[in-house]
């Protein structure tokens, strides 16, 4: 049981580390956000799940934290992306079309 928990901890922390690596390697704000948000969200949930295997009696509060992270993390990253867009930062090697400031 605790081995499964430990493995989940390692997986979660690995995703977090990969997300941070993406944060450093990616070339602009939007791509950094993509790397940071997705990895940190899944990483945190995996860590919380792993802790749930170590301490099954904490499931209720771990569930609240997981739900909270799942709900607020994308909202936070969208607000940052929106702010960056409004400030005038555009994705650099841009493909596709988008409308100019409406």
């Amino acid at each position: 049981m605790s081995i499964i928990g430990d493995i989940l901890l390692v997986i979660g922390c690995a995703f977090i580390a990969l997300g941070s690596l993406g944060l450093v390697r990616m070339p602009d704000v939007y791509n950094r956000l993509q790397a940071g948000t997705k990895a940190a969200t899944l990483g945190t949930i995996a860590v919380l799940l792993g802790i749930g295997f170590h301490h099954p009696d904490w499931w209720a509060k771990l569930l609240v934290i997981a739900g909270f992270v799942l709900f607020t993390n994308p909202v936070g990253s969208s607000t940052i992306a929106r702010a960056a867009y409004k400030v005038g930062i555009r994705p650099r090697p841009l493909a596709g079309k988008y409308e100019a400031d409406s």
Binding site: Y30, L33, Q34, T37, K38, S78, A81, R82, Y85
Partner: peptide
């Protein structure tokens, strides 16, 4: 935002 490769910037 959380699905592969996409990110919502503004709604």
């Amino acid at each position: 935002t959380l699905t592969p490769g996409t990110l919502t910037i503004d709604v």
